[in-house]
């Protein structure tokens, strides 16, 4: 049995240890906010926080995560009040929205360690793909979220 804490709740799974966390979140727990995009950690649509770090859950086998604490988009805030979520709404960032759970999770983790990011730091760290091309507003959203965090 593999134990996980997801968004503050404890779970135990009798699953093949190579099962990616992504599919555990989606198909076992029913947290479908975390998305499948590529399965090879290229696109970042599946980004969640594992023990405080942003990770691509499609390439994180649960056998290596026994006892880990996971936060998904559903657990980032109870009411979409996290500064990154607020900034995303204020800047009207999402279009199709499919990548945005991953973008938001990546940005939330990034801003914890980089509260005043430059554009170069953002470019180097936020590498998730958005096929709709929301990058213009996404960049504004990151700066706005950083400002909201200080407010």
């Amino acid at each position: 049995m593999i134990s996980l804490t997801v968004n503050g709740k404890s779970y135990q799974f009798d699953l093949e240890p190579e099962t990616p966390l992504l599919w555990v979140l989606r198909d076992e727990i029913g947290l479908t906010g975390t998305k499948y995009g590529c399965g090879i950690a290229e696109c970042g649509a599946c980004t969640v926080e594992i023990d405080g770090r942003a990770m691509r859950s499609c390439s994180a086998p649960i056998g290596a995560l026994d006892g880990a604490h996971v936060v998904t988009i559903e657990g980032l805030s109870p009411d979409a009040s996290h500064p990154v979520q607020k900034a995303w709404i204020e800047e009207d960032v999402p279009q199709c929205g499919y990548c945005q759970s991953g973008q938001i999770m990546a940005v939330a983790a990034f801003l914890k360690n980089n509260p005043n990011p430059t554009d170069d730091e953002i470019n180097a760290n936020i590498t998730n793909i958005c096929r709709c091309g929301t990058y213009e507003r996404l960049r504004r959203g990151i700066h706005r979220a950083a400002a909201l965090m200080k407010a």
């Binding site: 479908t32 979520q85 709404i89």
Partner: peptide, 10 residues
């Protein structure tokens, strides 16, 4: 649709 797309509910 945007509010549904920042918290994983869409």
């Amino acid at each position: 649709d945007v509010p549904l797309k920042v918290n994983g509910t869409a």
